[in-house]
Simulated scan of single mutants.
Amino acid sequence: MHTTELQGVAPIGALLREWRAARRLSQLDLALDAGVSARHLSFVETGKARPSRELVEKLADTLAMPLRERNVLLVAAGYAPKYPETALATPMMAQVRRAIDSILAQQEPYPAFLVNRHWDVLAANAAAGRVANFLLDGRQSPHANMLHNIFDPTDLRSRIVNWEEIAGDLMRHLHSDVAATPSDAVARGLLDQILTYPGVPQHWRNRDPAIAPTPLLLTHFRHRGRDLRFFSTITTFGTPRDVTLEELRIECCFPEDEATAAFCRELVEREHREAVAV
C-alpha cells in the first residue's frame, strides 16, 4: 500500500524551492551537489522541463528527504510513488511488531514508548503506565501525544521539576521537524497547538538554528515527596524502505539514580500485591 497523503500536491518546482530553502541551498548549490546543470534545474523549477524519474530521485537524495516526502516529490513530477506505507497492524509487519514488543518488554521495569513522527504514542510498556498512574494519581492522561503530555498544565507538566529545560529542548526538536519537512502540515499544526499553552516563552515561537536539540536530557519528576529522574535513548529502524518504519521510534527511559530504579521496582511489587489481593 502506498502513502495516501499524495493528492493535491504542489508542482515539483514549488516543492524543490521549498526544500532548497529548508536546506539553505541555492539553485546553483543544489545543481552542483546533484550533478546536474543549473540551467536544467532552473527549467524544472519553472515548469519548462519535466525531470526524469532518475533526476527526481537524485534530487531527493541530495536534499536528504524522508521517504514520505520523496513519494510526494515523485507524484508532483508525474510518477508513481516508490515507497510503500504499510500499516503496522498488517500481517506483513508481524515481525516488526514482535521486535517492537520485545524491546518494550525488555525495558521493564522502566518506561518505554513507541512514537510516530508527530510524537503520538502508539504503544507503551506496563512500566510507562505504572509511572504515569503514580504521577497523575490514577487519572487518565487527556492526551496520547508526548508533546501535549509535557506542555499541558493538567497533564505531566505539573510534575516536571525542570519543565522549562525539557520543554525548550522538545520545542527545538519540533521546530527542527517542521524545518526538515516543510510540506508536513500536521507538524506545523502541532507546533501551533503547542505554542498556545500557557507559560510558553515568546522566543520559543521562532526557531534558532544555531541551537541544536540536546542529545541526552534528564527529566526530573517530583510527586508526593518522590523524586524520579530518567534519561532517554531513541531507537530507530536502520535503512528503512517503508514510510511507516522510517517514521517510528522507540524511546526507552533509564533511571538516573538508584532511588528511581528502586521506586520502579516497588511499583511492580505493589501491582503484584494488588493483583493477588483481588
Rank of each mutant, 00 (worst) to 15 (best):
A60N: 02
P111R: 12
F230T: 02
M65D: 01
N125R: 09
A31I: 01
A38N: 10
A14C: 02
R188L: 14
H272E: 10
L16H: 01
H118L: 14
L74D: 00
A112P: 04
D169F: 00
A94N: 08
G78C: 05
S42T: 05
M146K: 08
T196V: 08
A22M: 04
W119I: 04
E266S: 11
Q95G: 15
R68W: 06
L88H: 04
A31K: 06
R39G: 06
A210C: 05
E57P: 00
D120Q: 11
E5P: 02
C253W: 06
F134K: 10
R159L: 02
S42F: 05
L218M: 10
W204R: 09
L6Y: 03
L216E: 12
I103M: 11
T181S: 12
D155M: 08
N133P: 00
E274H: 13
L74C: 00
E269H: 14
P111N: 11
P66F: 13
Q27R: 12
D137T: 05
A212I: 04
R273S: 11
L6I: 02
C253S: 12
Q7V: 06
N206M: 12
P142K: 09
N116E: 04
H148L: 13
I211P: 01
E165M: 09
D152R: 11
V115S: 03
P209W: 11
T4P: 01
A132Y: 09
L67T: 05
L104N: 05
R97C: 05
S52C: 13
H118S: 08
R205H: 15
G168C: 08
W204A: 06
R270E: 13
E274M: 13
S176E: 14
R20V: 02
Y197N: 08
S37C: 07
P84S: 13
I194Q: 10
N133H: 14
E246L: 11
E269L: 13
I160N: 04
V36G: 00
S26Y: 02
R265D: 10
P153G: 09
T4V: 12
R229H: 03
R98G: 07
T90S: 13
H2F: 14
N125I: 01
V268M: 07
G225V: 07
